[in-house]
Amino acid sequence: MGRGLVPFLAMILVQFCFAGMNIVTKLALDSGMNPLIMVTYRQIFATLALAPLAYFLERKTLPRITAKIIFQMFLCSLLGATLNQCLYFLGLKHSTPTMACALNNLLPAVTFIMAVPFKMETVGIKKVTGQAKVLGTIICVAGAMLMSFYKGKLINIGHSSLHWKYAQRMSEQGSGNEQVSFIGPLFVMASVVAWSGWFIVQAKMNEKFTAPYTTTTVMCFMASFECALVAACWEHKFTAWSLAINVRLIGALYNGILGSAVTFLVMSWCIEKRGPLYVSAFNPLLLIIVAIFGWAMLDEKVYVGSVVGSSLIVGGLYTVLWGKEKEMEHEAEKKSTGEAVEMAPV
């Protein structure tokens, strides 16, 4: 029981770290901070936090780094860090933390769609597992479309006595208090596509180069320059880069250290102990935590479209994961059966 409890508690910790990142980042963006600048600082602080770990943990076992590996690392930084995080933070600026977290649950479905042409996933529509993956993907996409284009009636769940006055003040006095619109969800969905592309490139690179800490450190290091270049083209004022406002400094440090370094280390450990599907299954918990925090601290409103859309996305997510898990179990069973036949005496 103890062995199963530790990964469970570790993944709960990860979801709370991600939830805090969404809340703190939203406050920093509402204070007027440019999302692209926030992403740049996140990459810088993540690099500084991960570099010592990569050096001490992998310096003796580091595989040979070739030009092809460097190019794949560059693609990973472009997709997994620069495009993914820039688009996500832009989407967060124009939406709410709850909506952004809900749409992030599209990741397994989008990854499945993008992996099929690269023959990293099979549809297998004649099998129940393949039908579950396809059906789950359709449900996820339907939920995302509903959240993006349908608001519905306001659900009156009362007013929280914990409402954070500081958050209200940041939103009112900042220049980043744009109204929630359909462009926010579109940015978040585009970030999911970029993130899925990173999964595919990362999987290809892992076939020849397995050094997760070094790979992530180099990815964040490259992304620091990429994000800084994009942010500099977008924002020309030097004062916009200032971290003098406390919430901006806290947001940048939180994103780099807890939002990237700590969560990556914990998830890597959990994947090693329990597998990737176990880690993916905790994603909807983030939505619940952020929804509660958003209502309690940021006075976030809850609408029918958001609730129904979130429910569809979570239902579709678990349908895809169920299909994938059963498919993996079937493949493992076939492999073990084949090995048993091969080892049996003639």
Rank of each mutant, 00 (worst) to 15 (best):
A223Q: 09
S161K: 11
S160K: 05
I200F: 04
M145P: 03
R169G: 03
M205P: 12
F225L: 15
M222Q: 08
L154M: 12
T215R: 04
K153S: 15
M205H: 10
N177E: 04
F149Q: 08
L186V: 15
A228P: 01
F187Q: 00
E178I: 04
S175M: 02
H159A: 04
S148Q: 08
L154V: 08
F149N: 07
G143P: 13
T215S: 12
N156Q: 13
I155N: 06
G184M: 03
V180I: 03
S224W: 07
E207Y: 13
A232W: 10
V180P: 09
S161A: 10
G176Q: 05
S196T: 12
Y213S: 07
M205Q: 15
I157L: 15
W195F: 11
L146W: 04
T217H: 06
L186K: 12
V230Y: 08
W198Q: 10
S196Y: 12
A142N: 10
P185M: 02
C233T: 10
C220G: 04
A203C: 00
A190S: 14
A190W: 08
W234D: 09
I183L: 08
V141Q: 02
A167F: 02
S171P: 05
F149T: 09
L154P: 11
I200D: 07
M222G: 08
G176M: 05
L154E: 15
A211L: 00
F187V: 09
H163P: 07
V192L: 03
V192G: 03
E207I: 06
N177L: 01
Y213F: 14
A190Y: 11
L186T: 14
G174W: 01
G197M: 07
F199Q: 12
I183Y: 06
G197L: 04
F209H: 12
T217P: 02
V230W: 07
Q202G: 00
S160V: 09
C227S: 11
W234I: 04
A167K: 07
K204P: 00
K204T: 06
R169P: 01
F225M: 12
Y213V: 12
V218S: 04
E207L: 03
W164Y: 12
I139L: 14
F199G: 00
C220P: 10
P212M: 02
G152S: 06
E172R: 14
S171Q: 13
Q168I: 06
V192T: 12
F221G: 10
Q173C: 07
F225Q: 08
S161N: 14
L229D: 01
I200V: 09
T210D: 07
C220M: 14
F149C: 09
Q173S: 15
P185S: 02
A228V: 10
A167L: 03
K165L: 04
A167P: 07
L146I: 14
A228M: 14
C227L: 07
G184L: 01
E226S: 00
M189R: 04
V218T: 13
A211R: 08
K165G: 03
Y166D: 05
E226Y: 15
T214S: 07
E172G: 05
A167N: 05
F182H: 13
G184T: 10
V141R: 01
C233K: 15
F182Q: 09
K208C: 02
A190T: 15
F149E: 13
F149A: 06
I183C: 00
V180D: 08
M222Y: 13
